[in-house]
Amino acid sequence: MDLKDRRQLALMLAPYLLGLVGLVAVPAVVTFGLALTEYDLIRSPRFVGLDNLRELAGDEVFHTALLNSAVFAAIAVPLRLGSALALALLLHRRFRGAGSARAAAVFPTVVPDVAYGLLWLWLLNPLYGPITLFLAWLGPPGKTIWGLSLPQFLTHPNDARAAVVLLSVFTIGEGFVLLLVARQSLPGELYELAAVEDATAWSVFRRVTLPLLAPILVLLVLRDTILSFQLNFVPALVVTEGGPPPYSTTYLPLFVYRTGFEYLRYGYASAATVLMFVLTAAAVWLQWLVLRRARLASF
């Protein structure tokens, strides 16, 4: 490798490194700086020390957003990962319909977020929505099956939160593809051996598939936890608009967005972002410890 070659390699890396520094590293550092200021983009930032953090500590809306985000992550991450894994294990082989079903499993992920949100707004509409109509059709007038009351996705807080989770359960394309490829690359001999030993499907899953997929599953748990802080932004903004009032589906990303871009309090928004960073890191670290203790993480 001589000098000319090294220079070419550096050139090939340059755009990416520029992106990493300019679009990730610098903004991340700037966030920490802005968190200590009062900044409205018109006047220059004014240093206020830890005032923003003190204010956040007493901000009811922030508390609600924090709790909403935590509950969302706790429910959505296992659901998303579970369905991605189930789909990958269902569809990894070649058989009639497998190809179309794989495409179908990825499809919701590639639909533009806003169009996806509008579709759900329609599906869940209390008067016109096919889902509501279907549930109503199942039961007596005004009720659904077993005499349960019809869900009010847009006016009842818990139903609205459930709707946001429901939206996120279908957009699992990335995890599905990764698990599909991982499952396909497991050696077939292992499964033939298990079949010769007459192992039950459950024990094959428990003793062969799960341990072998563990490293990638761990990675996905961590990544999905982090992603859960961004993937409810569009549903919360477009479908439920942060409500039902006052803040039933206001999650951290929506809180940050509104604080910054609607109320023009960028410093305060940055402080909330920093807390979001810290909480994410803590959650990831905690999961890592638990998963390592459970001997799922082999790396």
């Binding site: 679009l23 990730v24 610098v26 903004p27 991340a28 700037v30 966030t31 802005l34 961590l222 990544r223 982090i226 992603l227 802080f229 961004q230 932004f233 951290l252 990303p253 940050v256 967005y257 910054g260 960028y266 928004a269 940055s270 972002t273 979001m276 960073f277 994410t280 990831v284």
Partner: peptide
Amino acid sequence: MIPLTALLVPR
């Protein structure tokens, strides 16, 4: 590992 929403304001 950094959520995009966290980089919104500084970007």
